[in-house]
Design a protein around this nucleic acid. Sequence first.
DNA 1: ATCTTACCGATTTTT
DNA 2: TCGGTAAGAT
Length: 780
Amino acid sequence: MSEKQPNTAVFYRLRDTIRKRIFSGLNEEQFRAAETGQGPVLCLAGAGSGKTMAMVYRILHLYIFGPQYDPKPKLDREPTPAELEQLENWLEENKDNVTKRLPATLLRLIRQDGVSPYSILAITFTNKAAEEMQERLEPMLGSAARDIWVMTFHKACVRILRREIKALGYSSDFTIYDDQDHMQLIKKTVAALDLDDKKYPPRAVSSMISRLKSELKDPASAKKQILDLWEEKVVQVYEIYQRELKKNNALDFDDLIMLTVQLFIKEPDILEYYRKRFQYVLVDEYQDTNHAQYRLISLLAGDHQNIFVVGDDDQSIYGFRQADIRNILDFERDFPGAKIIKLECNYRSTGRILAAANSVISQNLGRKKKTLWTNNPEGERLISYSAQDEQDEARFIGEQITELKQKGENYQDCAVLLRTNAQTRTLEEAFMKAGIPYRIVGGQKFYERMEIKDIMAYLKLLANQADGLSLRRIVNVPRRGIGEATMQKIEQLASLNNCSLFEALRCYASNEIGSKAAKGMLDFILLIERLLEVKEDFSITGLTEKIYAETRYVEILQKENTIEAESRLENLKELLTVTQEYDANNEEKSLSDFLSQVSLVSDLDSYEDVVEAVVIMTMHMAKGLEFGNVFLAGMEEGIFPHSRSVGDGELEEERRLFYVALTRAKKRVYLINARQRNLFGRRSYNQPSRFLEEVPLELAEEFKRKGIFETTYQGKGKNKQDIFRKGFYVLGEKVEHKKWGLGVIVSIRGEDEDCELQIAFPGMGIKTFLARYAPLQKIN
DNA sequence: ATCTTACCGATTTTT
DNA sequence: TCGGTAAGAT
């Protein structure tokens, strides 16, 4: 017989139970990550260990219960019996299901000491990750979820900079240059300095400048650490490049981070404001942060030290983009008193896949020791297949996928992951032939298409007339008879008068009335001025349509009447869908805001796994995704590990990439190498990847093609005759004929031993044979 | 100013 | 092999 408890005590008990219920889907470590609200926390989260869960629930916990859970918080008033009943009812109703949604009333009742959603900053690298987190938060937190800053580094920086960049001498309608724009400007600068672009390849120059920026070195401080002539010149390029950006009121991607840090350092008041505001900072994929990003978050977390980072050093595969693995390895040193939480339970992959991945990654030195384990079943063995060549490789994958499909797998649960983009072609052809629906993620990106870039350049110029790069792009698009030579003059004029390209253009046009180029220029200037006048009156869609019409861009494409023009028109239509979506979803529509939103999306963001299609992409792009069945093609020395990375310390990063690729798979992994393949138009013979040997033998089995003659053959024999009888002929394969000598199979008709082979003998033409009788021998 | 042809060179790229 | 760039032709 229990004594009648006061309402408050009952409330405490119920609240505690509800808390446990909400977090019941987490394992012990995840829960610890979620509830440790104060101080620095490093969460080492292995692949597939539910780190997003941990982050989402951490935010949830902060919002509802605050940084430090108090089971008996001070209440303003005693809860009413009706309220207690509500809580009890909820508990009763949600006895068995895992909580995905919390009703607002319940939230209001139990939320005590919870932090303001405005004080939480959750940073990711991809929009996709940010959206995923946001989507999971919304049903739990309701509208409060929208007040939390869950966004990418770059987006957060753009937000801050749009408000504060005046302090750095830019104006707030700055343009963001994408990689293409950036490269363009680098090339121009290299040329302007009269440097030989053989000795100073734009790519290398760009990567050096990018490195300097991610190390927070401005041109002045970069000058102090020059090692040789080459670097000296590059720093000169950097200096001019940076000046040029500022003149154009433009920022490249690296600037977004670097300038934000500079801003914080230069303006302590501004830093103070954001420090006060973001009391709780969370960072996803911490192993991928570069130095600038590290500085950014350490500045923000400066005094409160409430910083929570999740990452996996074993999944650091962006070293070439200045991701600094030391950030995660040194976290405990950088943030004294840091708590370490390891998430080692994998919910994704089968035991065998995980064992393979563990074994592979254990070869790397200098990592934080972690061993993933799982309660999942052992699963099937990994399958390896040694293909004749890339066609055979592609065909094998196609066949296996067809087989999987028959077993009830969906196409969208199959992924082919590649080391390089160049490997996609053969696969595409094979899939097309086999009638397998496929999708290539990460090829030509929407916003990188010519026609889209053209229209965007118009919009950019309208938003920011200082943007000379955009002006240059469109001044003669469509044709207005303004060529390179004329533009050179204008550019000179601009730098002479220290004015913008647009102003120089105006000046030139009014001075050279009558010349052909001036006529075109005048057309262009009037067009832009007309658009500038009305840009405030239109929605983004309206403005875009006006550009289509006034430039006659669409009209000209229509007249072209080619398939190419057709697809460009399609893209322009698609762009209108994008603008419409923006217009519909954004209250105060500003052109700059639209443009930055667009600048910060990637191809991967549009990737949804609902389409019935096999997905083909690079291993890099696959990070963070998962698939039932994963095919890793091109497991060859030179390709993977890539020849360029063998040698200097990058082998471990390649191995991490392999680890990432393996751990994408839930059920099946196929490892395929081709014994020969065309590489740069040359036939090359590659050894199987060393990584294959790092997969323990007992976890894998080799797939043997059931050849036409193989039914009875079980041979171990080494002699040529045996091998010759065992094989199955493959298109493109080299064979030796007793009489004709070396040849290549160019066609195979029919099945099994009845098939008819056409073989090309160099200098002797194509001969036809019946496989059954022909005295053929395979050449490896 | 714009179109054509001969070279060269060739990872990965969240933003 | 392909695609992007640089010099030559119209």
